[in-house]
Write a protein that binds this DNA or RNA. Sequence first.
DNA 1: CCTACCGATCGGTAGG
DNA 2: CCTACCGATCGGTAGG
Lengths: 230, 230
Amino acid sequence: MTSATAAPMMGIRDEVAALKRERTLAVAAELFYERGYENTSLDMIAERMNVTKPFIYAHFTSKAELLAEICSRGIASALAALDGVLTTMPGNAAERLAEVGRRFVTAVLTSQRHIAIFSREEKNLAPADFQTISQMRRDFDAKLVKLLDQGVAAGLFSVQDTRLAALAIGGMVSWAYVWYRPEGRLTLEQTSEEMSKLILSLVGNQPAKRAAKTTVAKATPVRKKAAPKG
Amino acid sequence: MTSATAAPMMGIRDEVAALKRERTLAVAAELFYERGYENTSLDMIAERMNVTKPFIYAHFTSKAELLAEICSRGIASALAALDGVLTTMPGNAAERLAEVGRRFVTAVLTSQRHIAIFSREEKNLAPADFQTISQMRRDFDAKLVKLLDQGVAAGLFSVQDTRLAALAIGGMVSWAYVWYRPEGRLTLEQTSEEMSKLILSLVGNQPAKRAAKTTVAKATPVRKKAAPKG
DNA sequence: CCTACCGATCGGTAGG
DNA sequence: CCTACCGATCGGTAGG
């Protein structure tokens, strides 16, 4: 979990070591993403860096450590997105959830490789690493449930089962690593904005920003502007 | 894609061969799910069946063929769930989507192992198999987009971007393989029913089956029961 | 469809 | 941090 930019009080020696670790992890993430963990040998990683295998062992104890570091960064970024909103952002549950949605999607898509690797390579993690990382996932879910509960209590959300809704939200966002392409039809910003709206809709919170939109008129025999202005 | 139950006009010889294939695939799916594809040797599969490796090679040409068969059954079941509704079920887009949701979730959860394996082991598929299976996934998405478009055209759904919404729905349901446990809090039936409701909500279709439900009352200053029980 | 085996790959390390 | 190597695993097959 060393940061990519050198920490202030690091000696030159540590900075170099940190840089080598970072570079190794970046190359490993590329290859694990492209070819899969088991189909990537340490020799391949070393080759792409123009070094040899013992270079890697000078900075990591095992191949599995590379994997654990990559996976934990993936969920850490998602968790940080959630925590960032929960601990600093004011506003009601709907506003906070909208921002969580945007940041969560952004985190997943900017850590697309890491998230993909974690989803796929779970079974290749050392048991201890798997448990640590699973715990992060559970934390994430629990915090999201809490936010949904607050929204329900405030009458902003209409959800029968907040736990299921949280899992659904977590799934629709996490899954984005499968289909999102940076060069695709939607930019990262558009994707995160639209996904955030879908999340609000899922929890029964209508934006009602434009009265024209025929949001929920379905069962009402009388035609009226269904979704009242906020 | 041989069915697990013997086809009517099969000779006893073919029935036995089909049975052996099915049993092999079932054991392989168990092990691939528990341990991962690369961490499962053919000797392990054979051992769990009390045979030896050449038994497997008498019915399959390679380990990768086992994987391809397992993966393709996974998405085939999801695709069949969707097609079943689209080709036979009457009703408007909302009713059809609700049923798609129920059957899709049911398919994912009853094929949980297969879906998980496909999601994880993509990189271990032979290129040709990967393409075939990816095409099934694209078919699924395209059909779901079409259904959402119909709902929007009929004024039943309120979605800005039906393509994104379809991917979101596909994701929230597919992801259920990650968290669902048969012995968990919700039964398969409850899960599929509630997930289906979340899908309808995501596309902006309010059930409105019970007038009591405060679906979109958000901005109303009058306090009423916030989240009434269903 | 079993016994027995081959050939290749690869994580990890000794030695310097 | 490189050269060189070991030990183990494993997909696949020959031969019967």
